[in-house]
Design a protein around this nucleic acid. Structure first.
Lengths: 111, 111
DNA sequence: CGTTCATATGATTTATTATTCATATGATAA
DNA sequence: TTATCATATGAATAATAAATCATATGAACG
C-alpha cells in the first residue's frame, strides 16, 4: 500500500454512494441471483399465477416456492391477492421486467 | 394441486427460457448480489484502479479484494492490465453500468 | 362444526460462498 | 541474485441461505 493513489482515492470516495445504499443495492440484486427466484419472476412477468401453479411449473414442492415468494414479497418485488382459497402472485412493478431484461441483454449480446 | 391451471402452465412453459439460460442469468445477478463486489464495480465505474487502491477504499485486505476481482474477471465483468508491478482493473463493458443503474433507479424511485 | 384444499411457517439439514491466513508468483531495482 | 513490492492463490473457517419436513393457518363447503 506504499504506492500513492490518495488523489484517486479521495475522488472515488466522494463519488461512491453511502455504504447502506450500496448494501441495499446488492440485496436487491441478490434477489435476482437465485435460479428459483429468477424463474418465478420470469413466470410472473408472463402472467399472474397461484402458488401451486408455480410449483408445478418449476417442478418443486409447494413449501420451497412459498418460502421464495415470501422473500420476494418482503422485498416488494411481488404482491399477492386472495381469491377464495387460492392466492395469486404478480409482479409489483415494471422495474423487475426492466432489470431482468438488462441482464438478458448482457448475456445474449455477448458474441 | 387439484385445481386446474394446465392451460396457463402450457402457455407460460413455452415462453419460459431454457433452464440453462435462466441459470446463467441468475449467476450473472449473483455477481451483483454481494456488497463487496458491488462496491468494486461501482468504484471501477468511476475509474480504473489498482488492487491495493480498491482494498484501501473499501477498508478490506488485499486478499479478499483479489479473490473477488478474480470472480468478476472470470465472469468477464472486469478486465485488467499490468503496468510494472501494479495491476489495474477496469470494467470490461458498459452493461455493468447499465445494470447497476437500473437497480439504483429501482431503489431510489420508490417513494 | 369438522373436513378439505391452498398456502404459510418454523426448525433442521445441506450446500454455498465470503473472508482470512499463510504462502506463492512475478516484476523491478539495488 | 537477493530483496522488495504488488498481486494471486489454496486451504480452512465462518457465515449465509436454499430446500425439506412436519405442522399450522385460514377459507370454503358439506
Amino acid at each position: 500500500m506504499i504506492h500513492n493513489h490518495s488523489d484517486l482515492l479521495n475522488k472515488v470516495k466522494t463519488d461512491l454512494p453511502a455504504d447502506e445504499l450500496l448494501s441495499d443495492l446488492s440485496d436487491l440484486f441478490k434477489l435476482f441471483g437465485d435460479s428459483t427466484r429468477i424463474k418465478i419472476l420470469f413466470a410472473l412477468s408472463e402472467s399472474e399465477m397461484c402458488v401451486c401453479a408455480i410449483a408445478e411449473l418449476l417442478g418443486m414442492n409447494q413449501s420451497a416456492i412459498s418460502h421464495q415468494l415470501r422473500t420476494l414479497k418482503d422485498a416488494n418485488l411481488v404482491a399477492s391477492r386472495r381469491e377464495g382459497k387460492t392466492i395469486y402472485y404478480h409482479l409489483s412493478d415494471d422495474h423487475v421486467r426492466t432489470i431482468i431484461g438488462q441482464g438478458f441483454e448482457h448475456l445474449t449480446e455477448k458474441h
